[in-house]
Design a protein around this nucleic acid. Structure first.
Lengths: 177, 177
DNA sequence: TCTAATTTTCGGAGATTGCAGAAATGATTG
DNA sequence: CAATCATTTCTGCAATCTCCGAAAATTAGA
């Protein structure tokens, strides 16, 4: 697949952003490519387009599938897998956030919950216990907020997003909008 | 400074979470320690408590200061810096998100904007151009949303957070609450 | 200015991660 | 059930990251 300068730029920047957020560069680049690709691509297409080793592409795709960002499809008369990425950006963000929440945030939250419990009986000072509990509570509050918002229908989410700060106008006691 | 098992657990988990989000483990651990510490701590205190090299602590603190998560204070009759972390969790989250937005998200957004411009004239197919623009638009929308919400007074932010999905009830056309 | 205290920078050892190529495994067709 | 094609796992090297200890730089006080 031919990459115009703009496409190369997109893939490169997407890759860099990935590294800053703890995602392997190859993984992010492959995702970027599939994200803009008009057609499903085979692993070999990807190798050639991005100059990556076949094995590397295989591993990266597996990871992307684990994150549910990429799906394999088959085409008649072709034995190879053809890969596509989530096309809608809104879906993409949802999927990424869901994944991170489930794999990284939730376990930490659970661990900190246990830590806060342990603190009650292991001689941890009252002050530190309070700080641990505050920390936990705020993290939990953000998690609850996200879980609820995630459950709203798409249209409602879009409305909230578009309203932005104007949402404050609708608050019971007259927000500051 | 003595660490109870619970405190050790907190610091360890905080450190692990950091690594998953692209933050150096030492940096995250030092932040965790300062976050729960009842008193300002000197760099040497930190070294000793976490068994880290003095130079390492120095570098990490510099980074934390760069993110505005840690501040240095002085005490009468002591030449050394004493460090404290933001105490309020809500402030902490704000600071972290602001920092990431400014340093990582904004530059990517700007770069992608340029890429989308370039795409108009470098022979990039219409389909890919459309996808680039969609991507950019959605990212921009999230950024705008955050910028607006961040500007709201703390109380309003708290209200929104606590309302969660219930906010949909207040939407003009009757959300699905 | 000199000295002592403190912080920062530098260089490199050790660990981890990234990635290509080889080998092995699995699937499909004749 | 071979033969071919496709994918995954394995192996090892290279690059990167982490973090220590030493040296240099900075700062405060005499």
């Amino acid at each position: 697949m031919h990459l115009t300068p703009a496409m190369q730029g997109f893939i490169l920047h997407w890759g860099e952003m990935g590294t800053k957020w703890g995602v392997n560069r190859s993984v992010a680049q492959i995702h970027a490519l599939l994200h803009i690709a008009p057609e499903p691509m085979t692993a070999d297409d990807i190798c050639e387009t991005l100059s990556l080793a076949r094995s590397n592409v295989s591993t990266a795709i597996k990871e992307l599938q684990g994150w549910k960002l990429v799906k394999a499809t088959r085409q008649l008369g072709d034995r190879r897998d053809h890969f596509t990425a989530i096309q809608d950006m809104f879906d993409l963000v949802n999927t990424v956030v869901d994944g991170r929440r489930e794999r990284e945030y939730a376990p930490t939250l659970a661990a900190l919950h246990d830590v806060a419990q342990e603190a009650k009986t292991d001689g941890t000072s009252q002050h530190v216990q309070t700080r641990l509990n505050e920390t936990l509570q705020t993290m939990q509050q953000f998690d609850d907020w996200y879980a609820e918002i995630a459950r709203l229908p798409r249209g409602t989410q879009m409305t909230l997003l578009k309203l932005g700060a104007k949402i404050a106008r609708f608050l019971p006691k007259g927000g500051s909008g």
